[in-house]
Structures are given as structure tokens and as C-alpha cells.
């Protein structure tokens, strides 16, 4: 990574934080629990990192750790989205 590339990454990070604050502060308190489980599922995006780590050709420490990481991140992703859907399904009007 050159300094320029790092700077671009930091740019994206800072702007994303602002977007996050802007979007999340508009969520009504009634939906705060689904918001938490839903954003939780999104944080399972680490699975992308895990996939890249475990897809190497030869079996070594990296691929084993990557495989374990996939398991945990997938629990996070699938569990998070499924439970959020289960909750949101319950929200009904009169």
C-alpha cells in the first residue's frame, strides 16, 4: 500500500461513518432491536476477508484459520438476517 492508497481508504472510512450516523439516527426506537440484529448481520461482512484467506490452494495455517473464520462469520450473517426477518414479520398494523 502506498501512502496515497491508504489515504483513499481513510477517505472512504470517514465518509462512511458520516453516512452511518445520518442513516441510523433516522431509525425510530421501535425498530432499534431489529436494527441491532440487522447491522450485526452486516458486520458479518468479515466473511469476505475469511473467504479470501481460506481459498488458497495449499492447506496451511492460513486456510484453516480462514475456514474457522468463515464458520463464525456465516453464523453471524445467516443468524443475523434470519432473526431480523423473524422480528420484522411481527410488526403489524391494526
Amino acid at each position: 500500500m502506498t501512502f496515497g492508497e491508504i489515504l483513499i481508504a481513510v477517505y472512504i472510512f470517514v465518509l462512511a461513518v458520516f453516512v452511518g450516523f445520518e442513516v441510523i439516527s433516522k431509525v425510530p426506537p421501535t425498530l432499534h432491536t431489529p436494527l441491532m440484529s440487522g447491522s450485526n448481520a452486516i458486520s458479518g461482512i468479515t466473511v469476505v476477508g475469511a473467504l479470501i484467506a481460506s481459498g488458497k490452494n495449499d492447506m496451511n495455517l492460513t486456510t484453516i484459520l480462514g475456514c474457522l473464520a468463515i464458520v463464525f462469520a456465516t453464523i453471524n450473517v445467516v443468524g443475523g438476517y434470519a432473526v431480523t426477518d423473524r422480528m420484522l414479520k411481527m410488526f403489524k398494523k391494526k
Binding site: 462512511a16 436494527l35 441491532m36 450485526n40 461482512i45
Partner: peptide, 19 residues
């Protein structure tokens, strides 16, 4: 150096702090 992870991580980070 994966921008997708950076963006989503930042979104979740912000959400947790607000709550």
C-alpha cells in the same frame, strides 16, 4: 485493502455508537 469491508464496518460502528 477491501473498501466494502471498510464501508460496512464503519456503518455498523456508527450504528452501535448511536444506540
Amino acid at each position: 485493502s477491501n473498501y466494502c469491508l471498510i464501508i460496512t464496518g464503519a456503518l455498523v460502528g456508527a450504528s452501535g455508537i448511536i444506540l
